[in-house]
Nucleic acid binder design. Structure first.
Length: 373
DNA sequence: AAGTCGTGGGG
DNA sequence: TCCCCAAGACT
């Protein structure tokens, strides 16, 4: 094995790190200070599963109301498996990362069919479920089934970076692997779920990204970064690229109190969400923009429109894109056969469909316009 | 490995 | 205002 190095060394905890004391002190703090969260009422695997999917890249406060509504509508794996996809998407509207909703339902159907409705309890089986990656697998296995598996999220990487003075870039996948190895050595048998949650709770409440509350930290004594006074400089994380600007022309096409909407493809950005028809443009001339819009609606919906007036501009920023939308009110001139992805819907009934936030902003623009006139 | 995939809160 | 970022997964 030429060039192969011993992999154990970088995954070994420092000799001076007192594992038992750390885990014990952290759990004692967690037992008395943990927040009362809706998904901590019990350890039902399905409840834990839904919460972990919702919490991916999403704040606790934001998730709370969505979680309550979702569990009421889809209280069991079976209920979620049998539900129409549109209802699941509607329950997810506004949460973002909508593929989570589709993957969750697809996985629920898989669990129903393959595992009799019981969420699998082994790393091998649970990892096959759509939307369940390394973190979520460890979270479900430890919290719901008390398996000794790490659940390394952004909180845990920050906590461990400071605790052990790790200078690895936490944006790199290899760093998560390394920290998983380290965490695994520290998980107390019998309290794996609480321990993983305690690490995350510490990251969320005390060992926060900016201005960590070291003076009230239950594991202050174990923290190498604090001893060196560098806790504010950790973790190391590469900077994200700025979002790329995109210029879009949006058509609000009215016909007898109805408006034309379009369902986006089931893959890619905002998959399966409804929208007002829009087309990307590069040109700067106003007339050319309207021509592009006319041509696009003719090609895609076999509809002839007339652009009436500009309703204004709307901006919406995603992680990687910045949509600069120019919104035009349009008249429906002719066309009677819409493609299956398009519909003409009464304005009062738009709420039935699931729209991303970018299009709710357009609806607000329409509302402002009608309020003025 | 690096890009794709949402949204809202807080410093 | 701007920028970071929050219980990540998928390609």
């Amino acid at each position: 094995m030429a060039g192969k190095k011993a992999k154990e060394l970088p995954y070994t905890l420092p000799e001076e790190f007192h594992v038992f004391g750390f885990s014990s002190d952290l759990l004692t703090w967690y037992d008395s200070q943990k927040r009362d969260l809706p998904w901590r009422i019990n350890r039902d695997p399905y409840r834990v599963w839904v919460s972990e999917i919702m919490l991916q890249q999403t704040r606790v406060e934001t998730v709370k109301s969505y979680y309550a509504n979702f569990m009421e509508k889809f209280p069991t794996v079976g209920a979620l498996a049998e539900a129409p996809e549109d209802e699941v998407l509607k329950a997810w509207e506004g949460l973002g990362y909508y593929s989570r909703a589709r993957n969750l339902q697809a996985a629920a159907r898989e669990v129903q069919a393959r595992y009799g409705g019981i969420v699998p309890d082994t790393p091998e089986d649970i990892a096959t479920l759509k939307g369940v990656g390394p973190y979520t697998a460890g979270a479900i296995l430890s919290i719901a089934y008390e398996k000794v598996e790490p659940a390394v999220d952004g909180n845990v990487m920050r906590v461990f970076s400071r605790l052990l003075y790790l200078t690895d870039d936490i944006a790199k996948p290899a760093t998560r692997i390394k920290i998983e190895h380290l965490v695994r050595q520290v998980i107390p048998r019998g309290r794996a779920g609480d321990f993983n949650q305690a690490l995350m709770e510490l990251g969320a409440m005390v060992c926060v990204p900016r201005s960590p509350q070291c003076l009230t930290c239950p594991v202050f004594d174990y923290c190498m970064a604090r001893q060196e006074g560098v806790q504010e400089d950790l973790p190391i994380k590469g900077k994200a690229k700025p979002p790329r600007p995109v210029h879009l022309q949006v058509a609000v096409v009215m016909r007898d109190g109805q408006v034309l909407i379009n369902k986006r493809p089931d893959t890619g950005l905002l998959a399966g969400m409804w929208e007002f028809p829009m087309v990307e443009t590069e040109v700067e001339r106003e007339s050319a923009k309207q021509d592009v819009l006319n041509n696009s609606l003719r090609d895609r919906f076999a509809v002839e429109i007339e652009v009436l007036e500009s309703l204004g501009e709307v901006q919406h920023t995603f992680s990687h894109l910045q949509w600069n939308m120019q919104v035009w009110s349009c008249d429906w001139i002719e066309g009677d056969e819409l493609p299956p992805n398009a519909r003409l819907v009464a304005v009062d009934e738009l709420d039935i469909y699931t729209f991303p936030m970018a299009h709710h902003k357009i609806r607000e623009l329409m509302q402002q316009k009608s309020d003025r006139s």
